[in-house]
Simulated scan of single mutants.
Amino acid sequence: MRVLIVEDSEPLRESLKLGLAREGFAVDAAADGLTGLDYARNNPYDVLVLDLLLPKLDGMGVLAGLRTKADRPHVLILTARDRVEDRVLGLNEGADDYLVKPFAFDELLARIHALVRRRYEERTRQIAAGGLELDMVARRAVHQGEPLDLTAREYALLEYLLLRRGQIVTREEIEDHVYGVHKLPASNAVDSTICLLRGKLGLTGKDLIRTLRGRGYVLEAARARDSELRP
């Protein structure tokens, strides 16, 4: 999943970026509101972690600038402003959650996971399909009762396919959600990772993760006619 951090404090920004990357997120970061708004408008983020007191454009301005974006990210405001009025204003202006500094990283992580689940309409941390079971918090994957030994990239790709199960997912969408803006993949990176995933899924790998030539990939629990698949 892809997260954007907009925070002007360099130590905090870099600490969050490193911590979330260690948890398997593709993370981009901006130090001011204008850069953050530009990133958020032009990239499909799942979650935006947004400070309010920013140079060039404050957090409320960023929220206002995203109001017309069709596929806007879920927004977690991260700020030292702890008054009830500030929380109410932020939520009314379009934020999805509000966390006051100082905070525990584990709480921030739990809130981000909750926003990802909300974005993809998942009620619990577990996702299951076609003999696959995935725990989004523990970052564990099991296939037909056996744990899968996945790299961070393989896990991230499998997680995204599971969240979009039954839908056609293009190579470009995978690149957007699994890689950060500064880590553009090699031209065959997605295909190679799909191939490795199928190998680890054994004989059912190709049936679980299908290639639709010229359209993309689809993860499905049961084979459907191509005309029934959702874009």
Results as ranks from 00 to 15, higher is better:
Gln126Cys: 00
Lys200His: 09
Asp86Ile: 05
Val47Tyr: 01
Leu54Tyr: 11
Ile127Lys: 02
Gly130Thr: 10
Leu50His: 08
Leu89Gly: 01
Cys195Ile: 03
His113Thr: 06
Ala40Trp: 08
Val49Gln: 01
Ile5Val: 15
Val62Ser: 02
Arg111Trp: 10
Arg118Thr: 03
Leu66Met: 11
Leu63Ser: 08
Asp46Phe: 04
Tyr98Lys: 00
Met136Asn: 01
Glu228Lys: 14
Ser9Thr: 13
Lys206Gly: 02
Leu99Thr: 06
Pro185Gln: 13
Thr204Asp: 15
Asp226His: 15
Ile5Gln: 05
Leu158His: 12
Ser187Gln: 08
Asp82Val: 02
Leu53Gly: 03
Arg140Glu: 02
Leu134Tyr: 02
Leu18Thr: 12
Gly216Trp: 02
Val190Phe: 09
Asn43His: 11
Asn43Tyr: 10
Phe103Asn: 04
Leu150Ile: 13
Ala222Lys: 15
Val181Arg: 15
Leu163Trp: 02
Leu161Trp: 13
Val100Tyr: 07
Gly36Ala: 11
Ala30Gly: 04
Ala189Lys: 13
Leu212Ser: 10
Glu172Pro: 03
Ala189Gln: 14
Asn188Thr: 09
Ala222Arg: 15
Asp226Leu: 15
Lys101Met: 06
Ala128Ile: 06
Ala221His: 11
Thr35Trp: 08
His74Ala: 10
Gly61Phe: 10
Val100Gln: 08
Leu219Cys: 11
Glu23His: 12
Ser15Val: 04
Arg164Pro: 03
Val62Cys: 04
Leu219Thr: 11
Ala64Cys: 00
Val190Pro: 05
Arg83Asn: 04
Arg119Tyr: 12
Asn43Ala: 12
Thr79Pro: 07
Lys56Ser: 04
Met60Ile: 07
Ala30Met: 03
Leu115Met: 07
Tyr39Ser: 01
Thr124Ile: 01
His177Arg: 14
Ala110Val: 00
Arg119Pro: 11
Arg118Ala: 05
Gly205Asn: 04
Val181Ile: 14
